[in-house]
Design a binder for these strands. Sequence first.
DNA 1: AACTACATCAACCGCGGAACC
DNA 2: CGGTTCCGCGGTTGATGTAGT
Length: 214
Amino acid sequence: MGRSPCCSKVGLRRGPWSTKEDSLLASHIQQHGEGQWRSLPKKAGLLRCGKSCRLRWMNYLRPGIKRGNISEDEEDLIVRLHRLLGNRWSLIAGRLPGRTDNEIKNYWNTHLLKKLNTAAAAADKKKIKKPPKKSAAAAASSQEMKNSKVYAPKPMRVSSRSDSDDSLGSSDCAPEVLVSAWPEVEDPAALYHSSDSFADDMWEKVYAEYMQLL
DNA sequence: AACTACATCAACCGCGGAACC
DNA sequence: CGGTTCCGCGGTTGATGTAGT
């Protein structure tokens, strides 16, 4: 349907944000809240398009954002969530407090994809060495990686637009849905560690609930 | 020290879909 | 009900940093 004419790039700044721009954006949002991205730049005195402002706020300026140092636990959770949800970065980010979809997407594409590929390659090598019975756990896990069925439903916006300006926290549309439907994660670490049967139950529950939502 | 290749990640782009008129 | 506007998402790009030669 209607494609956004978006920012008619004329006269608009692009590229990296300066600290001055950051502070202008942050202070404007602190005063007026999120939303109205289209008109925000003008009101805030920024020569940026609304999309750019939104991205900057969501990924860097929003309070509570964690940058870098993705722990092994978080990494594991990302892998498991990706297996469950596919490239639904915003949903995955919604389960990782303080992490943004952009960061997770980048991390996946740069670190995890490589890591998983080498792990799978190593497992394949093992399989070739002793092909008769694929009993090795490593082979199984690599097969799991290959064969794992990723359920990737179409994204769906659920929150109404008027929600967007009520509070800073309501910005993440999909997580907003999930937060209400999924068990809230007090301690994300509780979700990790596949060997743990509690975690396995948890994943089944999560998956079932996710299916219900669709 | 200079150059090249590769890795990383912030930012941009285009699209789909909900909300609005 | 159909067209338009706006938002949010996922994919991609390109600037910058780092390692290797």
